[in-house]
């Protein structure tokens, strides 16, 4: 007899893309956690100025070159991951459970509950996300916390829709009625019968979303609405570096590659998980 876990591991081995994605994600996470030890110039994460080395192209000392005040870009990218991952954790940590709970409630209770939740979702989805985020961060002060609030306010809708669809399919299965007939409460049915069957979809969706949250966060800070200097942020770095294109191309391109690396990692891992867990994501 072969267990689910063994089967999943075996599928993982036959899915090198997912393994590569997983390694990329792990490298990003480890780099962020141990940034002070990994970064070649940890002090460059702050307001340091080294005009002797400003605008230095990539070389053996500065693998990604230096920026307009002479700070090592690689070090700042590594510290930038801290901001990105904090954003991911904050946004998905709130949006995901919120969306999952609402989606399950809508799919399970149907009727008026379903109508209210799903129409609210439709309304939220009809708003252009960037404009919404701009509005929210403009009203509040632009910083990491508010960027997080802005993104979260929009993000839960996607989880809600997905889980609503998964739940609607599960409630038609006989085991839900059987549970009800054998005296199970709504809470039991939602948490013990339905939720475990949503976990595959949730984990794939969350992994794929992590990349998109990083991208969205970078977009906001590119527009000056996210993390404020001198805290290193990938979006801000691209935006600053863009002033020096095309001559000092590395100042925009390198942080851009940093964003790309992280997003690609999450996407590859998410796709791999989807194949492994055999789930459909809208």
């Amino acid at each position: 007899m072969i267990t689910n876990r063994q089967r999943a591991l075996r599928r993982l081995r036959h899915n090198p893309i997912a393994v590569i994605g997983g390694l990329m994600v792990i490298s990003v996470i480890l780099a962020a956690i141990f940034a002070p030890f990994v970064a070649p110039f940890p002090s460059h994460a702050g307001a340091v100025v080294d005009f002797r080395h400003r605008h230095a192209p990539p070389d053996a000392l500065h693998w990604m070159g230096t920026d307009n005040v002479g700070r090592d870009i690689l070090s700042r990218v590594i510290f930038g991951y801290r901001v990105s991952l904090t954003l991911v954790a904050g946004v998905l940590g709130v949006a995901m459970p919120f969306g999952v709970i609402l989606g399950m409630a809508a799919g399970y209770f149907r009727g008026r509950t379903e109508f209210i939740i799903m129409r609210l979702t439709d309304i939220m989805l009809a708003m252009p996300p960037l404009v919404m985020a701009l509005a929210i961060t403009a009203i509040l002060t632009p910083d990491l916390g508010n960027a997080m609030i802005a993104i979260t306010a929009l993000w839960w809708t996607w989880h809600c829709r997905l889980i609503y669809r998964v739940t609607s399919a599960i409630v038609t299965e006989d085991f839900i009625e059987a549970a009800r007939l054998s005296g199970a409460s709504h809470t039991h049915i939602l948490l013990r019968e339905i939720l475990p069957n949503c976990m595959a979809a949730i984990s794939v969706k969350t992994t794929l979303d992590a990349g998109f949250v990083i991208l969205f966060g970078a977009t906001l800070s590119f527009l000056g609405l996210g993390v404020q200097p001198p805290t290193p942020d990938l979006g801000t770095m691209v935006s600053t570096g863009a002033q020096f294109l095309p001559d000092q191309w590395w100042e925009a391109v390198m942080p851009g590659l940093g964003v790309l690396y992280a997003i690609l990692g999450f996407n590859l891992l998410g796709d791999g998980l989807r194949d492994m867990l055999d789930v459909e994501i809208g």
Binding site: D174, R192, E193, P196, N197
Partner: peptide, 10 residues
């Protein structure tokens, strides 16, 4: 159909 009447995760 026992495939549908038993919760696969329990």
């Amino acid at each position: 159909n026992p495939a549908s009447s038993l919760n696969p995760k329990r």
